[in-house]
Amino acid sequence: MQTVYIMPAATDHEGQCRIVAAEGWYGAPRDSYEKHPTIWKEIGIMNSAGKIVCLEAGPQATAEMKDCEPLMAGAFFKFFSLED
């Protein structure tokens, strides 16, 4: 199982948010990322319009996230595998 988290941009001027993933289920991914940033891996980018710019995930995970567009910072998803 993996948690995918859309991190809020560090500043208003960035225009994009990083998409990160970690093994396991994290119901509060922001807290986990702040405490343990090394377990999270960057897998993509979301633009300021809430659209995925790039995503390193399997077709099922990518399709599920694209179906939820426009996405927003702070959103998170649970997948059994990002590769499927």
Rank of each mutant, 00 (worst) to 15 (best):
C54H: 10
G50N: 00
T38W: 01
A73N: 10
I39K: 15
I6E: 08
V20T: 06
K78H: 14
A61T: 05
A10V: 13
G24R: 10
M65W: 09
E69R: 10
F79Y: 09
A10K: 15
N47Q: 02
G74S: 08
H13R: 15
K78C: 00
M65S: 02
K41L: 07
T11Q: 12
H13M: 11
C68R: 15
A21C: 14
Y5E: 07
G24N: 10
Y5H: 05
P29M: 03
H13K: 14
Q16Y: 14
R18S: 12
M65G: 01
E69I: 01
P70W: 01
T11G: 08
D12M: 11
E34G: 02
K66F: 00
C17L: 02
A75S: 14
I6Q: 08
V53Y: 04
Y26W: 14
M7F: 01
T62H: 14
A28I: 07
P59N: 13
L71H: 07
P37F: 00
E56V: 01
A57R: 03
R30M: 03
I6M: 09
D12S: 12
T62W: 03
P37I: 04
I52C: 08
G27K: 10
M7G: 00
F79A: 09
H36V: 07
A57D: 03
K66P: 03
W40A: 08
V20S: 03
I19S: 02
G58M: 08
H36E: 13
Y33E: 07
R18T: 07
A49Y: 09
N47R: 01
T11H: 14
F76S: 15
S32M: 05
A21Y: 02
P8N: 06
A10S: 13
G50K: 04
A10D: 13
D31F: 02
I52T: 06
A21P: 04
M7K: 15
G44H: 08
W40R: 09
I43G: 05
D31G: 10
M7P: 02
L55P: 02
K35R: 15
E42F: 00
C68N: 15
E42V: 10
V20A: 07
I45G: 02
C54A: 11
E42Y: 04
R18M: 03
I52Q: 05
P70G: 12
L55M: 11
A49L: 10
K41H: 12
C68Q: 15
V53E: 13
E14R: 12
I39C: 09
F77W: 11
Q60G: 04
A9I: 05
A63C: 09
C54M: 11
P37T: 05
E14H: 10
E42L: 07
P70H: 07
G27D: 14
A63G: 11
V53T: 13
